[in-house]
Computed example of a mutant assay.
Amino acid sequence: MMTSTTMTIRVTAEAKERLEQLARITRRSRSFLAAEAVDRYLNTEQAIIDGIKRGQADVAAGHLVTNDAAFAELTAAIAGRDGNR
């Protein structure tokens, strides 16, 4: 069983009303919906941070592509896709 803890946050009156409406419509508690929103936000932000760290590791390891090479590859990919229509 997952343990939980209580947290207090400040939101706009509009956000609170929207949360209350969504809770009524979905028959979920405001707390459940807010916790779900926080969890999704954290997952998204963590994925961004992980991507940045992978990019930094690539740079540190010398795995670099010039802007011209990257642009040429993207242009070729787009041309190939357009040719398949």
Results as ranks from 00 to 15, higher is better:
residue 1 M to N: 07
residue 1 M to A: 02
residue 2 M to G: 04
residue 3 T to K: 05
residue 3 T to L: 11
residue 4 S to Y: 13
residue 4 S to D: 11
residue 4 S to A: 10
residue 6 T to A: 04
residue 6 T to Y: 00
residue 6 T to N: 06
residue 7 M to R: 15
residue 8 T to E: 05
residue 8 T to Y: 01
residue 10 R to D: 12
residue 11 V to L: 13
residue 12 T to D: 08
residue 12 T to Q: 04
residue 13 A to W: 00
residue 13 A to G: 02
residue 14 E to N: 11
residue 15 A to M: 08
residue 15 A to D: 09
residue 15 A to Q: 09
residue 17 E to M: 13
residue 20 E to M: 14
residue 20 E to H: 05
residue 21 Q to C: 11
residue 21 Q to M: 04
residue 21 Q to D: 06
residue 21 Q to W: 02
residue 22 L to H: 08
residue 24 R to S: 10
residue 24 R to V: 09
residue 25 I to P: 06
residue 25 I to N: 12
residue 26 T to M: 01
residue 28 R to M: 14
residue 29 S to C: 13
residue 29 S to W: 05
residue 29 S to M: 11
residue 30 R to I: 11
residue 30 R to L: 09
residue 31 S to F: 11
residue 31 S to W: 03
residue 31 S to R: 11
residue 31 S to D: 13
residue 34 A to M: 14
residue 35 A to T: 15
residue 37 A to S: 13
residue 37 A to P: 05
residue 37 A to D: 09
residue 37 A to Y: 10
residue 38 V to Y: 05
residue 38 V to Q: 02
residue 39 D to G: 08
residue 41 Y to D: 12
residue 42 L to G: 10
residue 42 L to D: 10
residue 42 L to W: 13
residue 42 L to N: 09
residue 44 T to R: 08
residue 44 T to I: 09
residue 44 T to S: 12
residue 44 T to C: 11
residue 45 E to C: 14
residue 46 Q to N: 12
residue 46 Q to G: 09
residue 48 I to K: 11
residue 49 I to D: 09
residue 50 D to M: 07
residue 51 G to L: 05
residue 52 I to D: 11
residue 52 I to N: 06
residue 52 I to H: 05
residue 52 I to A: 10
residue 54 R to E: 12
residue 54 R to I: 10
residue 55 G to P: 09
residue 56 Q to F: 06
residue 56 Q to P: 09
residue 57 A to N: 04
residue 58 D to P: 07
residue 60 A to S: 04
residue 61 A to M: 04
residue 61 A to Q: 08
residue 63 H to Q: 07
residue 64 L to V: 14
residue 64 L to F: 02
residue 65 V to F: 03
residue 67 N to G: 04
residue 68 D to P: 00
residue 69 A to L: 13
residue 69 A to C: 08
residue 71 F to C: 00
residue 71 F to D: 01
residue 72 A to S: 12
residue 72 A to W: 05
residue 72 A to K: 14
residue 73 E to C: 03
residue 73 E to Q: 15
residue 73 E to N: 05
residue 73 E to A: 15
residue 74 L to C: 06
residue 74 L to S: 00
residue 74 L to P: 01
residue 75 T to N: 10
residue 75 T to A: 14
residue 75 T to M: 07
residue 76 A to I: 01
residue 77 A to V: 03
residue 77 A to D: 02
residue 78 I to N: 01
residue 78 I to G: 04
residue 79 A to W: 03
residue 80 G to P: 02
residue 80 G to D: 07
residue 80 G to Q: 05
residue 80 G to M: 02
residue 84 N to F: 00
residue 84 N to S: 12
residue 84 N to P: 00
residue 85 R to H: 01
residue 85 R to L: 10
